[in-house]
Design a protein around this nucleic acid. Structure first.
Lengths: 344, 344
DNA sequence: AATAGAGACTTTACCGGTTCAGTAAGGGCT
DNA sequence: AGCCCTTACTGAACCGGTAAAGTCTCTATT
């Protein structure tokens, strides 16, 4: 990319106009002590008149801050487009970044290795001041990498997955348990779960919580679990195979790991001639607007994804400013009953 | 944000290790002439051994390229999360950026003014080497701003909206016409369209194309159009009011401006006891995976959003490297009939 | 043999900020 | 009056690169 034809106004111009040195301008714009009110005002006025604001690039190079936060996401693009979760999460992150005049550097990567490489190069190249890490897997390399680099990060995921990094997480285990108890309380004794990608840590947390919750049920209940890739197609396939069994042998309630799959499940049920919720109850997860657009509307474990993103960003700023590692739980998803769940 | 504790490896270290000056390293890494093969190799080897790659920040400051592309999006966060379009578009953009080791700087803004301010500050601060502009409105200020700044941009939208900027666009007018003709060919004589936000230029293009297409129908047909904000809720409301009329007075086919609203329309029809497609045909737009997850599946005007994003990115690189303004149409959305459309 | 020119590097001056060691002026204290 | 402290500011070095001009060597030409 080539240079601009525009005459750029720099700190030097501002300094000249205010009749001070560029050091003074720098002090003023960083709210550091050592300048009289009068001079400060003069500098700001000059800057305003020239329409100047400090170049982040130069600022970064000079070694102070980096006003950019990284987010690398490793999922197939097609899926991302569909998951309302991500965009909403991003918008929550943005809402906090904007207050600090920070930007988000977003990159889709194809493999965990590529992500690690990207983080290294972003950090070494001072492209980012910190990063948000999502989708933790078993033996995730990122905690080690972040530690080695000294890269400030916040991990989105349960502390058991994030290797000692500062983490922000929802208590999925409790939420799954609540979902199971709710369905059991409705009278369901054959409960299935269509889970996400098995590689992700939060999926396995939910999987074992589901197992345990069902096992604790009294009277005892039957359980099924299917792993998918989070896509609607996979959700549809899973639902189809679950519901293909004889009426007395198939689940009467299905919990999904996101809302796309629940929507897919809904249409599979319709296609198979099963009524929701009379013949089968469906419970979604994440609860985007989508859940209220179907017929019947989808009951869901809902949480404030936007707020979640905001909390993640706030926590990242904490890490960047030197706060020690910590664990930041955000409110557990709560059950929002709608039209897709009822007694069997 | 504070500095790193990590010992950074710089061009100087590489130069020292390869036994040359930093100028030589720079030449090597920019593939410029003036170095022997042997030296070049030695430099690359040294760089590899030290794990060094040039700092984009420094590179930027030194006045050559800027390897970041901006994208400011001015829509409510909640909506964005739902529109499969955006994430898919972004992923298409990314797919091209990655090849050029470019990153995407993404920012959600709340108003067109804020967007203009952001572009200015990004460009003046050398944060971006170019930008993608979306969602053009009538009398959009951005062409003027881009021109004044000399900022390389590519506009996503019909040339009639984008004030002479290089643009990439789909021929929505033709697509709308095709949609209307298709429904008419099925025998529909009462056709409605649930459009997007009236402020957007592409919405008004579709609106007049729809009008004209219906008017050209023989035998004549009746038409309705409703403006919304693209949200599912709005789509549901619009559908409800369209279908509330007496059977002989209401539309027998509805075209939606995105797929979320079509999904909402589908469930409104169900809720009102109308069968799709027997009582009313529904036609979606954009055709994300969502359209195949409903029951019945949604017929749609489908186009390759990922490829569209990729083309936009490629075009932006063209602009950045100095190509003159141009108009780049991408393939018109094509009709993909599925289960939601049939003769009335 | 003298000279020009090409090839292979090195030197040096930026880019636009931050930071830190000075410095000069003013005020309080003895 | 002399001394020490602040306070307010300047100047220069530096961040990690790029780019243009300069240096040195070796070969080809007249």
């Amino acid at each position: 990319m080539t240079a601009t034809p525009t005459p750029r106004v720099t700190i030097k111009d501002v300094a000249a106009r205010a009749g001070v040195s560029k050091g003074a301008v720098s002090l003023a714009f960083n709210r550091k002590p050592g300048l009289s009110e009068a001079t400060r005002d003069r500098i700001f006025r000059a800057a305003r008149e020239l329409g100047w604001s400090p170049s982040l690039t130069a600022r970064t190079l000079a070694g102070s801050r980096v006003d950019v936060v990284g987010l690398a996401v490793c999922r197939p693009a097609r899926l991302l487009g569909l998951e309302p979760f991500y965009m909403e999460f991003v918008s929550g992150v943005e809402s906090v970044l904007v207050e600090r005049s920070c930007s988000l550097l977003l990159r889709l990567v194809r493999s965990p290795d590529e992500e690690v490489g990207l983080l290294e190069s972003w950090w070494r190249g001072r492209q980012i001041g910190g990063s948000i890490l999502v989708d933790f897997r078993a033996d995730d390399p990122r905690p080690a990498v972040a530690g080695r680099l000294g890269l400030p990060v916040v991990a989105v995921g349960h502390p058991s997955l994030t290797g000692g990094l500062t983490s922000v997480w929802t208590d999925d285990a409790t939420a799954v348990t609540e979902a199971v108890r709710y369905l059991a309380a409705l009278g369901h004794r054959r409960i299935a779960r269509v889970g996400g990608a098995a590689a992700f840590g939060h999926t396995s947390i939910r999987t074992s919580a589901f197992d345990e919750a069902v096992r604790a049920l009294e009277p005892p209940a039957r359980a099924w679990q299917v792993a998918t890739d989070f896509s609607g197609d996979a959700g549809a396939r899973a639902t189809r195979s679950l519901l293909a069994a004889a009426p007395g042998e198939r689940p009467t309630a299905i919990v999904y790991d996101n809302d796309i799959m629940a929507v897919a499940g809904l249409s599979v049920a319709a296609e198979m001639g099963l009524r929701v919720p009379d013949d089968v109850s469906l419970l979604a997860w994440d609860d985007s607007q989508l859940c209220r657009l179907t017929h019947p509307t989808l009951s869901a474990m809902s949480h404030d994804v936007h707020g979640f993103g905001a909390e993640v960003a706030r926590t990242l700023f904490g890490v960047i400013t030197g706060e020690g590692p910590g664990s930041h739980p955000v409110p557990t998803p709560v059950l929002t009953p709608r039209g897709s769940t009822a007694p069997p």
